[in-house]
Design a protein around this nucleic acid. Structure first.
Lengths: 216, 216
DNA sequence: CCAAAAGTGTTGGCTGTACACCCATGT
DNA sequence: ACATGGGTGTACAGCCAACACTTTTGG
């Protein structure tokens, strides 16, 4: 609020770590860079703030560009000041999307694609660190919030929910304890419908009582 | 990482919420603004990034300017993009200091002073919101980290530590349970010395095993 | 009838909470 | 002697983790 240095300001970019669960694995959306530096390397989607735009607006815009989604869990993660070596500021966000409704942008130059977080290609800048940070934050939030609502369709079985948790935490969970805990948290309610997909016993379907982030 | 808009960049400022515990109350350091807008209003210390400086460096510099301290708990809090109405980006940090060793800057124009967080004057911009955010984060961290190390002198009694916790949480704690919990966390160790200050029974002194932030 | 996933309870250990009295010191 | 804060143990409740079998369906 004082000091007159640096009147020209800084480049401010927004990065978005977009996560989903697919085929039992936690995956992150990456694009191929079309500009130097790190041209043709994989990186997190992001871009500079446009004039008059807030950080949240820029993150929402980026997410929409890449997935066509706007109404999902999206949270500020951390602000980095040295990712590209010099000067620019990068504000990282992380978002959780249901792969079933995310439609990847097909702008050919960007080549967006999903990668399992435990099997990433070489990344531009220090993007591994950013993804790692997002992952730890997500794991911490699973325990005391309903963030997973954003990774699943509106109706889902408890087994599906459990598989989602297991993908994120990277370890198996006990079925009975899981159900007991989720039900006692009172964050889901049965829909009365059952899922007949598969060649197995139909499962009771549930929905989240709140389809927005709730912290306990 | 793409898009060429806004080549001039943005003003990037750092804000520091400097907290201490004094006289049983959690207090925050405020300065009086010497420039418009909000000239003469109280506000959080902060300033623009200088060229070539990282965010962390700027926060450390600001903290040093105000308190003469550098080796304390300091953590990034959140990045705001609309605090001053338009355009500029403010990266907020929060710091915890021992009031016994913090020496307030005496540059007359700034008038730094401590205010209890539950009795703040009118503040510039949306600084109340920033302080509130810092307070909630601090309360959450108390439970699963040793952040309080930064609020106390090197040696302290468990009663002192408890008073510090109570000031932050804003409620009384049970003495026996508090001691049991702290000791079982294994974050402090007895120094063997006792404090003879006061006109009371001397207290066993402890120190933190780690004088840096440890998260569990 | 077989394969695959859904659904369902009990027990033991641990952790957190409530609660009251005696002690050492300085004045 | 008294005022002040330092120091200590136990009992109960709630929470979490471990653990295995039966049911329903489709093929």
């Amino acid at each position: 609020m004082k000091a007159a240095a640096d009147p020209a300001g800084r480049q401010v970019a927004v990065l978005v770590v977009i996560l989903t669960v697919n085929e039992g694995r936690l995956q992150v959306l990456l694009i191929r860079r079309s500009a130097e530096p790190f041209k043709d390397a994989w990186s997190l989607p992001g871009g500079l703030l446009t004039p008059g735009e807030s950080l949240q607006e820029a993150a929402v815009r980026k997410l929409d560009d890449e997935t066509g989604l706007t109404d999902v869990f999206l949270e500020q993660l951390y602000t980095f000041s040295d990712l590209d070596g010099r000067g620019s500021i990068a504000v990282a966000y992380f978002a959780l999307v249901d792969i079933g409704v995310a439609h990847l942008s097909r702008r050919r130059e960007w080549l967006p694609a999903w990668f399992p977080v435990d099997d990433l290609p070489a990344l531009a800048f220090d993007n591994e660190g950013v993804i790692d940070y997002a992952l730890r934050r997500l794991q911490a939030k699973l325990d005391y919030s309903n963030v997973a609502y954003s990774l699943l369709p509106e109706e889902f079985s408890l087994s599906q929910l459990q598989r989602t948790y297991e993908a994120i935490l990277g370890r198996a969970l006990d079925k009975r304890n899981f159900r007991k805990r989720i039900l006692s948290l009172d964050i889901v309610e049965p829909t009365g419908r059952v899922a007949s997909e598969g060649r197995h016993r139909p499962a009771q379907l549930y929905r989240f009582r709140e389809r927005k982030a709730v912290v306990f």
